[in-house]
Write a protein that binds this DNA or RNA. Structure first.
Lengths: 337, 337
DNA sequence: TTGTATGCGTTATCAT
DNA sequence: ATGATAACGCATACAA
């Protein structure tokens, strides 16, 4: 392991000078600077982040608080994509990331203090958890994904837009008898539903209560049963909206088991835009949430906060997605309704 | 932020004493120890990992080298499951993990030195990459997943067992005309194929060259076409082995597009045992690789190395998987062949 | 059993 | 423009 001292010795200067050269400080001669940098490279010098952190108070490390109950979280495409983007953007800005997790006898906040992270990204967690509240209430820079805390910067997937987009797609394709399977009643679900009802009232579309079923995000079995119920309805919907692309697989099975074809007999629309929705047959019409962009922005905003000498005004950033086309929706003629 | 000094002041002892108490050193009075620990807790003390690392030379941090070319890697169930297990086991042993990634002007090894990781887990990477070789050749404790370097501990999914298991399953169900679609010719593919040929020669099963197609792991489009080719064969196979569960979706589509049913018209077997294989219809017979166990063991072995005063003898640990049953294989009667 | 002193590798302040 | 020195927070060898 080669240290600043070693370089100083070789170059015949003091370690202070070497440090300045390596950090591109202005108060140093151009010639010496270049010589020192050359030697450092030659000797394979790499600074010691612990020592630097101790001295500067900055670790260049970002904490990531992602739930992973029973190994989920990463297996969910929306979140793994987001994490991937977080990782990439952090690397781009020369940060590393550290997973903040429930330690043996450490709260989330303590874990952050222990590792000295410069800031934290919070996502996919129980936002009412006392430990999360503690963390959010601390003086650490924080960016929250898909949830808004007062006075905190948030990056939000536009669920109103998404809800509206899917129902509008069905409507524009001529569907008037629409079935709706939604996830558990989180704030996310609520927003999508609100947007859907809003659209319905705008265009005078009526979705009877019997056409609406609650299932669960990412749970194909629950969606299978909900789909079955809809298919058994006396006046079967011509199009069904699903909680998300993954749970849709359950709906797909139910439809096939009933001997029906997509989109000939029934149309389907998903939510998320995961890769799986592209490779199934027919490809699913779905609302693509831009998880990648969300992760990128989260880090960008967090680092802005970290770098800013004065506290920054919190922002709420809506990230909009878009409909991904597919063959799962048939255009319905007026007389068919 | 509360430091050892602060506690010392409050307790009226020296900071050395506090340090000892907090680290459960033996040379300290039981009474003072308890008092100090109580005060520390009371004051919400949390040690500073940078300072500790600087002093002790241990960061309690493990580097994880996972490829993530174009955002893949995490979206692959096998690897995301493994990563999840790595994370969990590291947390269990009170380690944090740091992703080692291609830095702007840092090699993998330099990144490790910079962050002072105590050891590294390597997986899903180009094992011939010069930077990887450099890392493996360093003095850092290393555990490699799914690849064997000389003198390095490795955790390996038993691809021979897997290859044998899938062909044997088909054989035992009476199939004699078997189609085989395999991934690109990596060492993993080679091992599975070797085991398959070995089994064939043992039982006198002949798989003609025309029944064997190369596709690509995780690539459903390539598998779609390979499946089509097999279906067009004059003497169509009664059972097809696929590269992995995910790419199988392509095969599934090809089979459906040909108007055939699984398993009535054709049987199918996958590889991996990802969650998706459970929720499709019919559930896929597949060989489940125990990615979770692999991740757990990798960390366990790595920490053993880190904690050991003397260099440990490298091990190669085979992790066996098992067949997951499903409805995708029909039992074939002798006269049908 | 407790305290004093030192140093881990780096950066920052202040002289020179 | 360069260097001497102190300090970041902690753990430890050694003295008391």
């Amino acid at each position: 392991m080669v240290h600043i001292k070693d370089i100083a010795k070789v170059c015949g200067v003091s370690s202070a000078t070497v440090s300045k050269a390596l950090n591109n400080q202005p108060d140093i001669g151009e010639a010496t600077k270049e010589r020192i940098q050359a030697v450092a490279k030659e000797m394979g010098y790499m600074s010691n982040s612990s020592a630097r952190a101790l001295k500067t108070g900055k670790t260049k490390n970002i904490g990531v608080l992602f739930v992973d109950e029973q190994g989920r979280g990463l297996s969910h495409d929306y979140f793994s994509t987001m994490l991937e983007a977080i990782k990439a953007q952090a690397a781009e800005l020369e940060y590393d990331i550290t997973f903040i997790c429930p330690g043996k006898n450490m709260s989330y906040l303590q874990h952050c203090y222990f590792r000295g992270v410069d800031g934290v990204v919070i996502a996919n967690i129980n936002y009412n958890d006392a430990q999360v509240i503690e963390l959010v209430s601390s003086d650490l820079p924080v960016v929250v994904i898909d949830h808004v805390y007062p006075q905190k910067t948030a990056v939000i997937s536009d669920n109103e837009m998404g809800g509206r987009a899917v129902i509008q797609y069905a409507y524009n394709m001529g569907h008037r008898n629409i079935g709706l399977i939604h996830g558990e009643l989180t704030s996310v679900t609520q927003k999508r539903l609100d947007a859907i009802w809003q659209f319905c009232s705008e265009v005078g579309l009526n979705i009877p209560k019997s056409n609406v079923k609650e299932a669960k995000f990412h749970d194909s079995a629950k969606t299978y049963f909900a789909t079955q119920e809809l298919l058994r309805l006396p006046n079967r919907p011509t199009c069904i909206l699903f909680p998300d692309d993954y749970s849709y697989i359950g709906g797909l099975n139910a439809i096939h088991d009933a001997g029906l074809s997509i989109p000939e007999d029934i149309s389907t629309i998903g939510y998320d835009g995961i890769e799986l929705s592209r490779i199934i047959s027919p490809p699913l019409v779905t609302y693509h949430q831009d998880a990648k962009e969300m992760g990128r922005i989260a880090i960008e905003k967090l680092v802005e906060q970290i770098d800013s000498p004065a506290p920054l005004k919190p922002e709420v950033i809506m990230v909009s997605g878009s409909i991904m086309d597919g063959g799962s929706v048939r255009e319905i003629l007026p007389e068919e309704n």
